[in-house]
Amino acid sequence: MFEGFEETRIDVGQAEIHLRQGGDGPPLLLLHGYPQTHVNWHKIAPELAENYTVVTPDLRGYGDSRGPSDPETRQYTNREMAEDMVAVMTSMGFDEYRIVGHDRGARVGYRFALDHPDRVEKLAVLDIIPTLETVERMDYEYAYAMYHWLFLAQPHPIPETLLANEPAFYVDHLIDNWAAYPDHLDPEAIAEYQRCFEDERVIRASCEDYRAGLSVDLEHDLSSRAAGDRIECPVLALWGDASGTVDFDPLEVWEEWATSVRGRGLPCGHFVMEEAPDATLAELEPFLA
């Protein structure tokens, strides 16, 4: 897994980011989702590394990265995590780059593109719509299907205490419920997600991430909407046909936030690049080129 990639850690001030880097060519930043780590790119990162310098970090607090020692919700906004990635890429000598994000990483990615339009050349968002749009569509049926948003955002230490009791069970539960083809996820990758979720610091960080999603991140999205801000770089939106986002047309949603959008649904559930790596690459490679 990640043969030919090098591991390193980069201190960005409030956080210490663990990442793998491989390949040669224009820089490409891959941002993972929940409840995962950078390992969720293991099926497509080596192929992308044939044409790009691929950087696959763990977001602050996730995986083997470390966040603030005394975490607060405002330290886990998409904006703060995007600033981490600015520092990471700057330290590696990269001022402009392409970004591909999945799930929580895609939320960091679109905030990144809104806050730092001069740095993001292209953006691919996998299986999300903007956070504000998600919340505005959350009727009782959507809330039932997306209960984890409301559960994880409850005050500390309620979700942390419950998750720490059976972290591996919870990771398995999410995979079984969100994947159309759970058996397409590599057991070695799942074991890595479980290992990281056994760390109470990771559980705490992920809960703060979701608390920010239902508070400060919404403030930032509302501010961007009010200001008429739009993502100016080309955007590729991909989603799983069997994922929860297909109750509406994601492209129509993204057209309200970006000037140039294309994309489509893929034959899979939420874990797009792990369930359908070939189909994902078939869309990503021409878009990124």
Rank of each mutant, 00 (worst) to 15 (best):
F2A: 05
E6R: 14
V12L: 05
Q14G: 15
E16N: 13
D24H: 15
G25Y: 00
Y34L: 07
Y34N: 04
Q36C: 02
Q36P: 02
H38L: 13
V39K: 12
W41Y: 08
A45S: 06
E47L: 13
L48Q: 02
A49P: 04
L59G: 05
R60Q: 08
Y62F: 14
D64Q: 12
R66G: 07
D70P: 01
T73M: 09
Y76S: 01
E80R: 14
M81I: 03
A87I: 00
V88N: 03
T90S: 13
S91F: 03
V100Q: 03
A113P: 00
A113S: 05
D118W: 00
D118F: 05
V120N: 04
K122Q: 14
V125S: 10
V125D: 13
I129H: 10
P130R: 08
E133N: 13
V135H: 02
H156E: 11
P159S: 01
P159R: 00
E160S: 04
L162D: 03
E166P: 00
A168C: 06
Y170T: 12
V171C: 04
D172V: 07
D176F: 10
W178V: 02
A179M: 04
D186E: 14
A189C: 10
A189K: 07
A191E: 15
E200M: 04
I203R: 08
R204Q: 11
R204G: 01
D209L: 03
D209G: 02
L214A: 00
S215P: 00
S215V: 01
S215Q: 06
L218I: 12
E219K: 09
D229Y: 00
D229A: 11
V235E: 10
A242R: 13
S243D: 14
S243I: 07
G244V: 13
T245G: 02
T245K: 11
V246E: 12
V246L: 09
D247H: 14
D249P: 01
P250W: 09
E252C: 08
T259I: 08
R262C: 11
G265D: 09
G269A: 11
A276R: 12
A279Y: 06
A279G: 00
L281G: 06
F287R: 04
